[in-house]
Amino acid sequence: MKDSYPPQPPTILLVEDNPGDVRLTREAFERSTFDATIECVKNGDETLSYLDGCGDSRPYPQLLLLDLNLPKTDGFAVLEELRRNDERPRIPVLVLTSSNADEDVLRSYELSANAYLTKPDCPEEFIEMVETIESFWFEEVHLPPPPP
């Protein structure tokens, strides 16, 4: 892990309303060698509330895994709000969704998503995805330092 990264396990905010996908993602993190804290919210409103509560009471997550198809405020609206609000630190956002529609990919990147991933079909592929996320986003990429 990069020296500038916090010594404690990173926190990843999973934004997912499907309980089966939450379970698969959590199990993939548990079965991988990646030590991370996974916080989970079910919709865009909860995501923005979670982030509004970060700072003094809890640290900001180092990464967001964001589904697009959410009840209430959807993933696109979350991306819009994250990029519009300059008071929050820039948190890398990986769209993790079942859609592989070109218009969803394009719109996600236009709204400053850092990556677009299609959800794997089986648990083994979820584990591979988690290990790839860990390797790339927490070992190779230089992330911005957390806010003071």
Rank of each mutant, 00 (worst) to 15 (best):
K2Q: 15
D3V: 12
S4E: 14
P6I: 05
P6Y: 04
T11S: 09
I12Y: 05
V15L: 00
E16H: 00
D17E: 10
D21C: 08
R26W: 05
R26E: 11
E27T: 10
F29M: 11
F29E: 03
T33K: 12
D35H: 14
D35F: 12
A36Q: 06
A36P: 08
I38C: 01
I38Q: 02
I38H: 02
V41Q: 07
G44M: 02
D45F: 09
S49Q: 14
Y50D: 00
L51A: 08
L51N: 07
L51W: 03
D52I: 00
G53M: 06
C54W: 04
C54G: 05
D56S: 15
S57C: 10
P59W: 04
Y60N: 01
P61G: 07
Q62G: 08
L63A: 06
L63Y: 02
D67V: 05
L68Q: 07
L68D: 07
N69M: 11
K72Y: 08
K72L: 13
K72H: 11
T73Y: 08
G75Q: 05
V78S: 06
E81L: 13
R83E: 12
R83S: 14
R83A: 13
N85A: 09
D86V: 12
D86M: 07
E87H: 14
P89V: 00
P89C: 03
R90V: 04
R90L: 05
P92S: 02
V93I: 11
T97D: 00
S98H: 07
N100L: 08
N100V: 08
A101W: 01
D102Q: 15
E103M: 13
L106V: 15
R107M: 14
L111K: 04
N114V: 06
N114Q: 10
A115C: 09
Y116N: 08
Y116A: 09
T118L: 05
P123Q: 12
I127P: 01
V130H: 07
I133W: 07
I133M: 06
E134M: 05
E134D: 14
S135C: 11
E139W: 07
E140G: 06
H142Q: 10
